[in-house]
Computed example of a mutant assay.
Amino acid sequence: MKDIKNLLVPIDFTKESVAGLKAANQFATKFKGKVHVVHFLPYHPVVTPVYPGDNSMSVNKVVQEQQMEREKIHVLRKLKTEMDLYLSEDLRGQIYIVSDTLNSGMNDLLDDIKVDLIVSGTSGSSNLIEKFSGNNTEKMIRKSGIPVLAVSNYADVSLDDVLIATDLSTELPTRLYDMCRLLENHGATIHFVNVNTTELLNEADILPKMSALVKALKIRNFRIHIVSNKGEVNGIMKVVDKIHPGLILMKTYQKSSFWTFFEGSLAEKVIHETEVPVLVEQV
C-alpha cells in the first residue's frame, strides 16, 4: 500500500468535524500528505407565487442561484478559517463545496478526486449526529469504498501501537493488512487481537493460527492477544485498556442483509465505546 497522500475531511462546523480536522492534520504530518476539506450545501429551492395573489407557487431560479452563491461565499470563508486554525500551512489542500447532500454528493466527489483516506468526526455515543439525514461517518463507511478514520473525541493520535481485531476468517481484509504493513514501516507495533467467544476453543488452539496469519502477512513488529470473553466488544476493550493503542483497525461489511448504515456491526459498537480513533475498511 502506498503512503496516505490525500486525506479528505467533511466539515459541517460541529465540534465533531473539528476533531476530524485535527486528527487529519496529524496523519498528514506523519505521511507528508495533503488535507482536503469538503462541505455539503444541500439544495434549498426558493419558492414564490406565480402571480401576485395567486396560491400556486413556482421555483424562482434566479433568486435560488443568488442565494446559493451567497451561501457558498459564506461557507468558503468559514472553511478557510477552520483550515487556518487547525491545519499546518504546508498541509492545506483543496476546498470543495458540493451543492448536494452527503449521501449522494460524496460518491460524485470521490469519482472526480483521488482520496486515500477519509477522516471524519463522529459522536462517541448512541446519540449520533443527525446532520445530512444520518451519521456522516456511518454513511461514508458504507458508501465510499475508501478507508474511513472515525474520530469520536480528538486527542493526540499516536501511531506507536496499533490494534487490529481479527476473527481469522478466510475473508481477509487485504487492504487492512496493507495498512498494517504501512504503519509498521512508519514505526508502529501491530497488536493482533482475537476474542474467543466460545468455550470449544482455548488459547492453545488459536495461537498457532494467529501466528501463521501474522507470518503470512510478513509483519515483523507485532504482539498477539487472545482474549476469552463472550462479548467481542468487551474483549477488544480489555486489550485497549491494557495497551492504550493510538489507533484501532477494523473491517466492516457491505451486505444489504446486514447493513442499516452498519447498525449493530462490531465496528460501530467499538466506535461508540472508545475515544481511540478507529480506521474502518469495508470488506
Results as ranks from 00 to 15, higher is better:
Asn196Ala: 00
Tyr154Gln: 06
Glu16Ser: 13
Val240Thr: 06
Ile11Tyr: 13
Thr198Cys: 05
Leu149Ile: 13
Val151Ser: 07
Glu16Asn: 14
Lys22Phe: 01
Thr137Cys: 04
Pro42Gln: 02
His272Ile: 10
Glu268Ala: 04
Gly246Thr: 08
Leu266Ile: 12
Met83Glu: 02
Lys22Met: 05
Asn221Tyr: 08
Met83Ser: 03
Ala165Thr: 02
Asp116Phe: 02
Val276Glu: 05
Lys30Gly: 06
Leu217Gln: 12
Glu69Gly: 08
Glu16Phe: 11
Asp3Phe: 11
His272Met: 12
Glu171Asp: 14
Ile243Cys: 08
Arg70His: 13
Ile236Ala: 00
Ser125Gly: 12
Val9Leu: 03
Met250Ile: 11
Ala204Asn: 13
Leu201Arg: 05
Ser265Ile: 11
Phe258Leu: 13
Ile141Gly: 07
Leu217Phe: 05
Ile97Ala: 04
Asp3Tyr: 09
Ser265Met: 12
Ile243Tyr: 06
Gly231Asp: 10
Leu247Arg: 03
Met68Phe: 12
Ala155Leu: 07
Ser58Gln: 15
Pro245Glu: 01
Glu184Gly: 11
Phe192Cys: 07
Tyr154Ser: 05
His74Leu: 15
Asn234Gln: 09
Ser123Trp: 06
Leu266Thr: 13
Pro147Asp: 12
Ser99Tyr: 08
Leu91Asn: 11
Leu109Gly: 02
Ala267Gln: 02
Val38Asp: 00
Asn221Phe: 05
Ser211Leu: 10
Asp54Asn: 01
